[in-house]
Nucleic acid binder design. Sequence first.
DNA 1: CGCCTATGTAACATAACGGTTACAGAGACA
DNA 2: TGTCTCTGTAACCGTTATGTTACATAGGCG
Lengths: 224, 224
Amino acid sequence: MSAFIVIVEDEEDILELIEYNLEKEGFDTIGFTSTKNVGQLLEEESVDLLIMDRNLPGVEGSEFVAQMRNVGVETPVIYLTAKNKESDIEEGFDRGGDDYITKPFNMKELVLRIKAVLKRTKKDKTEGKMIYRDIVLDLGSRELFIENKNIELTKLEFDLLHTLISNQNIVLDRDYLLEHVWGSDAIYQDRTVNVAINRLKEKIDPDKSKEYIKTVRGVGYTLC
Amino acid sequence: MSAFIVIVEDEEDILELIEYNLEKEGFDTIGFTSTKNVGQLLEEESVDLLIMDRNLPGVEGSEFVAQMRNVGVETPVIYLTAKNKESDIEEGFDRGGDDYITKPFNMKELVLRIKAVLKRTKKDKTEGKMIYRDIVLDLGSRELFIENKNIELTKLEFDLLHTLISNQNIVLDRDYLLEHVWGSDAIYQDRTVNVAINRLKEKIDPDKSKEYIKTVRGVGYTLC
DNA sequence: CGCCTATGTAACATAACGGTTACAGAGACA
DNA sequence: TGTCTCTGTAACCGTTATGTTACATAGGCG
């Protein structure tokens, strides 16, 4: 899971520490010691996550985010804050922040929270296309093209193919698919997955010549 | 799938009910009626799952978990909560909780969720590749490459090789293999291991020139 | 060398797994 | 309400993985 992360933190050593650790995790980062220029960046570039110190000299971090929200920027935010009085925390949440973390924090926790937020927001990011071999899955219009031919999919089929394609080369077991496609509270039988997969197979490869979806006996399914 | 589960629930009868049912499922459990002593346990012992009432007298369950996260404890959590207002649920998730279940709940659902969480956290640990000499075992795609040639394995063969390779240079006896590959509740004969090992040997080294798997007479097998 | 035990091998039986199909209920839509 | 589509469930069946058994072989030890 790669992502473009903007960090605003006035203490340079902390800023560098965060950047170093996040890049080690494979994220692209850019750091600022003030909110200057950040607004423009958020408006113009596709930023996946903003990590924002709340105790910046001059502007309150949450004030800045509130302004951003007003001009239509929806980038999720994780606040860094030395305060941990509950009122502050609640305030941060109320204004649309997605998470907070109190200093001092450890890197492991920050990374975990980042991944959690990205995972959560990845869902509503429906831009872009996913490609696998000659399969093109348009996440915006929810259309599937195979060899440039449009193939209609039901919601279930689309979601199923989507999670398969976003985990290509990884064998997904039925429980995983049930949880991620049907929902974590779904209590269905794993045979349900079975049938759904085969309906999908039938649609995307009627004459069974392509073998996009490989079944791994005793385990699950994979796109490989 | 055995696991060590800590339960925090102030109502003793509910606590006992949960413990009874989980132990019936083969889990090791320990129950507490308050968070006292729980923090220490989580830090010192390897706990697989925490089941946490959110409505404890005094401390908020999620506050307690947040504190634990701050000191580096990553134990997954399932919250028990009587509240079901959506805001509460989201908050629980946002702060790093892995799942929640609202009271009143039925045991079946709780057990299902427990198994799901355990499986999910186990999976995170098992990504990547394992290498031994010229053997490359891809845990995600469940593929085996020897000298860059792909060799198909059945589920059993894969799991067997996986535990061998993750215990290389250690002689594993048949009981260990039965428990870890076939499952702790498996009641097979040790000849079963024998045959499985040899089927694996045949696949990964047909002309018996490499001798990846060494049999240690009277003890078991090892990759050394 | 000869015995004994552990291990390898091959054949067989069966249980598990997954593909397929048919059907019924749920939901959308007119 | 009636119709149509989507989707979960159950039943059936072929395929294959795998446990079991029986027998062959190899290794250790006197």
